[in-house]
Amino acid sequence: MSALARAAAEGTVLAPTGSSLVLALVVGVLFATGTYLLLQRPLTRVLIGLALLTHAANLLLLVAGGLSGAAPFIGDDGSVPERMADPLPQAMALTAIVISFAVSALLLAVAYRSYALTRDDVVQDDPEDSRIAHHVEEGPS
């Protein structure tokens, strides 16, 4: 049986036992600013907005893990502590960070390519949208 399963069987509290108000507020602010930036026209702002949203989501994962400060799940001497920090949210957040790192790198490359092609940082109009707008103005052809 794994150490974790053993710990759970011995009745160690694993469930989150509260969360930090400050962190929760930070998550909210990050989500808000990220959303705001995402809705902007310049591509760089969109990218930064996405980065902030990713941070917000990762932080939310950590908040879901409960308050910090408890012992890691197995003590150095192999004993199982009374109340222990839940390692899973950290692991998940780390994985999410790895993934967002890779995707952001790719996104930056594509954005750079877009800049190289158009010499402009602004999100281009959708040709289909323009066509529809044209139709509406002129009446159906």
Partner: peptide
């Protein structure tokens, strides 16, 4: 760009939901 940004946004939402479920 549209595709990547929309997919990425969905992924961020997904992580958020996972956090909430957890």
């Amino acid at each position: 760009m549209t595709y990547i940004v929309v997919s990425l946004l969905a992924s961020v939402l997904f992580v958020t939901v996972i956090g909430l479920v957890y």
